[in-house]
Design a protein around this nucleic acid. Sequence first.
DNA 1: TTCGATGCAAATAGTTTGCATTCTA
DNA 2: TAGAATGCAAACTATTTGCATCGAA
Lengths: 167, 167
Amino acid sequence: MTVAYPGPAVVVEDVAAAVEVMRSQGLRVSASRRVVLTVLFAAPGPVPAEQIADGLGGRFPLSDLGSVYRNLETLERVGLVRHLHLGHGPGLYAVAERDNQEYLVCEHCHAVRAVSPTDLDAVRGRLRDDFGFTASFGHFPIVGRCADCRDAPPRDHDHGHEHGRHA
Amino acid sequence: MTVAYPGPAVVVEDVAAAVEVMRSQGLRVSASRRVVLTVLFAAPGPVPAEQIADGLGGRFPLSDLGSVYRNLETLERVGLVRHLHLGHGPGLYAVAERDNQEYLVCEHCHAVRAVSPTDLDAVRGRLRDDFGFTASFGHFPIVGRCADCRDAPPRDHDHGHEHGRHA
DNA sequence: TTCGATGCAAATAGTTTGCATTCTA
DNA sequence: TAGAATGCAAACTATTTGCATCGAA
């Protein structure tokens, strides 16, 4: 089950602080949950559940993929974790950031650019003025061409399948 | 396999015209392909492959889901068909429109609003000015709250699973 | 010592693919 | 009648779930 509507972000510095939050929420602090948090803090950006179960390529203890998904859901519900969807491919998870990041993803080079919501307020304003629509780009990012790829010739799978690098 | 980067849209009025295009592309005109096109022309909006295989609820001949996917890919490659992704849930397919529709989808009521690309030029302009980014919303739509749902309280699965109605 | 969390395996959804057969051109 | 497209089944990816066991509080 995908997470219920996520509550407000709970931003913490490190695993220890996250553990405090978990306890304060009545959640149990298991080894598996520590691993999930440790991997997320060590990751260079949003990562798929599979990489978490892999211990980010073996650098951390492995855990069961099913439990990883369950823990991610739990951690997202309390606000410690967020996830987003980059085009096709698996969902990507990250620790919640101070300002609920939003994203621009290049369909050509798959670069992911994280921006703070205020940076998109002008865009959001236009959408609201023109369509009465209040957009959010934290869960389903803006897709298109980054500056570097603006004029690159289209290639197979520009609507692609693989998940991206991070900016 | 998802479609390779789709070529320019080929907009036609009806199945007969689509068949012409297929022939002109050296594609064979099979019963199964006629069904796919017939269903797409009869559909009220973008529909999942499954509904096409179902003959849109039995109103049209059924066909094999695997073949439907293959045909959709082929038809999309020649430009007769387009598909988009609404949040979670299956991809949705439609006959190519005159102006390569883009979409706004409400994460709350799941309404899908199709707009022509020029209507989003102001939004696109801001994105280009502010980030050097050229956005496109035809394949991965803008997600947020429509005017009606702007103030509705969040509910479970606002990041939801089901696919939406059409505007 | 209890109830929440885990691990494992099976189930599910969406989509793709291999292969023998069928049918279009 | 050659090669493209089909139908069916199996494979695959991402994710969820049931259940017996384990472990944190």
